[in-house]
Design a protein around this nucleic acid. Sequence first.
DNA 1: TCGTTTGTCTACCGATCGGTAGACAGTGGC
DNA 2: GCCACTGTCTACCGATCGGTAGACAAACGA
Lengths: 211, 211
Amino acid sequence: MEVRAQILEEATRLIAARGFEGTSLQAVADAVGVKKPSVLYHFPSKKVLGQAVLDELLSRWNEILPKLLMASALTGLAKFDAVMHELCDFFAKDTDRARLIVRELLDRSGDTKSVMEQQVRPWVDVVASYIEKGQASGQIQADVDPPSYVLHISCLALASFSTSDAFNTALGKRTRGRVHPRAQAELIRIARTSLFEESYLSHQSNKSGEK
Amino acid sequence: MEVRAQILEEATRLIAARGFEGTSLQAVADAVGVKKPSVLYHFPSKKVLGQAVLDELLSRWNEILPKLLMASALTGLAKFDAVMHELCDFFAKDTDRARLIVRELLDRSGDTKSVMEQQVRPWVDVVASYIEKGQASGQIQADVDPPSYVLHISCLALASFSTSDAFNTALGKRTRGRVHPRAQAELIRIARTSLFEESYLSHQSNKSGEK
DNA sequence: TCGTTTGTCTACCGATCGGTAGACAGTGGC
DNA sequence: GCCACTGTCTACCGATCGGTAGACAAACGA
């Protein structure tokens, strides 16, 4: 069972870096240190291996999903901070994750339709409904378009993390392999400032003595 | 010269959709309606063809770059709106553009280092310096990190446009091939709200009678 | 009219692709 | 001792990859 896990790990790394089409079974086998038929013994085809990589990613995501939304004891800014913190942590823990998702969105934009409608959209609707509540209570800016906001911020996190190397180079930072702390702080600032009413934010920061 | 342009066009479309590794010269030839050696007559190798696709994209970008920054007669919010409008228009005119750039960032994150440092960073620095001026005059929020902000908003536009199909599906919209108007408006709102001081924005909207 | 150039083609090359067949070694249970 | 199972291997398959050689036809310039 050890070899199977290694194959999955190296395949994840290679597909994230070079794409599914750009990764050969031979390259995966070489990375693990076995021969090609051994790879095909554990995963009966390349397509199955690719799907296993995505399934592994999805199961990791499902691990933190509860923490994301079941932090329902929190409200307003505290809930927002918890969600953004978990989201950034998820991608920061393994930089391949954002790359894999972005590649999947690019490579199979057609095939992901049903996944989008069945898996992503309900999740977006839940977060959007929270935002609408915040708008009703005046904590959140009235002209926010909740579903678009949720998707844009998701896209922003995905893109910034998946291109973190080029991102840091353009920043002139040498923080390899992960998003620079200042850039991550700015990401969260953009998301927060474009969501909450300024009056609510200043009130919260006064209360908590933050910044 | 007609065939060469068609090859470039179909190669652009195919590489944007399936990636460089996922696009064979045979597929390009079939799309144009010629045989494979004809493709290799106009472009001596696949690598050259791929670079030509990127060069074409870069030259289109250089066409609008002056309009982006030489709109220097404008200041503050008017300049911001002009830049964001041109930026969105650029990607909206051809949805392949964002996909090509994102793929390039993913596939050759290492090789793009010099391009980043020589082409992108100066541009980022220019915009960042404008933002710093805005901070000094109080129009722009003091806690914005200018270079990070510029890159994040660029990433946001890139990611939202390049994944527009999946994006719209998750939104439940059927606006195929381009970003839904509401989503694009929300993108600009996020960028504007997270940049300018609220007092400046409300002052400007009072002056122009907008919204 | 006659070379030359331009562009497209057929036929083919070696390398690599994903995948298969089957030998072989270890490791149990009985 | 024996058989079944597991896992890895060598050797190979047809298909496709990027790329080349060279025939051929149309267009062009002198």
